[in-house]
Simulated scan of single mutants.
Amino acid sequence: MTHYARGLVVRDPGVPATIEELRLPVIGPGQVRVEIRAAGVCHSDLSMINGTLRPPHPLVLGHEAAGQVVEIGDRVSRVRVGDHVVLNWQPACRNCWFCEHGQPWLCSTSSGVAALENGMTLDGAPVHVTLGLGAFAEQVVAPENAVVAVPPQLGFDLAALLGCSVLTGSGAVRNTAGVRPGESVLVIGLGGVGLSAVAAARAAGAGPVIAVDVSEAKKGLAEAAGATDFLVSSDALSKEVRALTEKRGADHAIECVGRASTIRAAWRATRRGGQVTVVGMGAADDMVQLAALDIFSSARTLKASVYGQADTDLEVPALARDVLDGRLNLDHLITDRITLADIPDAFTRMARGEGARSVAVL
């Protein structure tokens, strides 16, 4: 049986996204069809349309989402019809070298794919879907390893955030940086990912937790997430951070912007022997320059954190339990609940640095 669904489509670079009717692929063995109930507007989606990334077109945007399974194909064993699920844009094959060596977030079958065809069509022609999902749509078809079941008591809007911003930000703190109680943490960039990193740092017992953004308006959100201090980004950032960290600099800096300038700022504000963790996805031509002598004499470590360096199949259910048990509060992350048609305006607000997460509720 053929199924159709409306989705947010960018037909060509520079052309505004519009809602179009899409023909879904017929599900095959090992695949599931999911009715999307909520989808977060992530900066990675903005990168697909502002030139930071150059995916093929036409393109269905969206990858941070949650929904309900409405159909399963043959040999599907991990979910059933009716299950509530979070989408996983970096599904692990469990068979490649990276998966077998404990790094499923670097799975060679899915890493580095900005957009691909999945059998969905528009006007009879193939379309590409963001990060293999295309979740700004009423329904999607995905492999079963791209969905993770979560308790039905968890609202779809909060569940959607677990699939990207929360997992990415909290994983950068817990898994990549390995923040310990009493260590100082600097977080630069307070979108959904950065605010999740702030919350995770505070939950880990870090102190001080210093939140930085270009907008003074983010101060309230930072404090709600658990920041002990808030700074507006400036050329004096390194000096201000040292004043809050006994003149040493932060033990950890979590960079959530993805720009050479903010990576350098994080580097300068970190103490000797400290660690800089880069979470933001930057442009290929935005080069980071560090002096060779500085690298040696500062003894700092510079690492990247891909998808929170997390095993999604294990950590998404754990995060869901933390939310339901009250150990993890996500209420401050959603600043706008919108419709599918409102997503282009949400991109505009994001580009201006306004709010935390906009979530489309379908």
Score class of each variant (00 low, 15 high):
105 W>Y: 14
77 S>H: 10
113 V>Q: 09
98 F>L: 12
92 A>D: 06
88 N>I: 10
49 I>Y: 06
90 Q>V: 15
48 M>P: 02
93 C>P: 04
102 G>I: 07
115 A>R: 00
89 W>N: 13
57 H>L: 03
111 S>I: 08
94 R>N: 12
116 L>Q: 10
103 Q>T: 08
64 E>F: 07
72 I>Q: 05
119 G>K: 00
90 Q>H: 14
64 E>G: 09
95 N>L: 13
111 S>K: 08
70 V>A: 00
66 A>K: 00
72 I>M: 06
85 V>W: 13
76 V>E: 00
114 A>C: 02
115 A>M: 08
71 E>Q: 09
86 V>K: 02
115 A>P: 05
57 H>W: 10
75 R>M: 05
84 H>C: 05
82 G>Y: 05
103 Q>C: 07
41 V>F: 05
57 H>K: 04
59 L>I: 14
69 V>K: 00
108 S>Y: 00
67 G>E: 01
70 V>Q: 01
105 W>I: 00
87 L>M: 14
44 S>W: 04
106 L>K: 03
92 A>W: 02
97 W>H: 12
53 L>R: 06
103 Q>H: 13
96 C>G: 13
117 E>I: 05
80 R>W: 10
48 M>T: 09
106 L>S: 07
72 I>A: 03
61 L>T: 10
93 C>I: 03
109 T>N: 09
97 W>M: 04
41 V>W: 00
98 F>A: 12
90 Q>E: 09
58 P>A: 08
96 C>W: 04
57 H>E: 06
101 H>C: 08
46 L>F: 04
92 A>S: 12
74 D>P: 00
97 W>E: 10
83 D>W: 06
80 R>F: 11
47 S>D: 11
95 N>V: 05
105 W>F: 12
114 A>L: 13
58 P>Y: 04
57 H>D: 07
58 P>M: 12
77 S>Y: 12
92 A>L: 13
71 E>T: 03
53 L>C: 08
87 L>F: 15
48 M>L: 15
92 A>Q: 07
86 V>D: 07
91 P>I: 03
64 E>S: 07
116 L>N: 09
75 R>K: 09
47 S>L: 14
113 V>T: 14
68 Q>I: 07
55 P>Y: 04
43 H>T: 15
66 A>R: 00
104 P>A: 12
43 H>D: 06
44 S>F: 06
69 V>M: 03
62 G>T: 15
120 M>G: 00
59 L>D: 07
41 V>D: 01
108 S>V: 04
52 T>S: 08
71 E>S: 04
45 D>L: 02
61 L>R: 08
57 H>C: 11
56 P>R: 14
44 S>T: 15
61 L>V: 10
93 C>E: 13
85 V>I: 11
82 G>K: 05
59 L>M: 10
61 L>F: 09
56 P>F: 12
42 C>A: 10
101 H>Y: 12
81 V>A: 08
107 C>T: 06
104 P>M: 03
50 N>G: 01
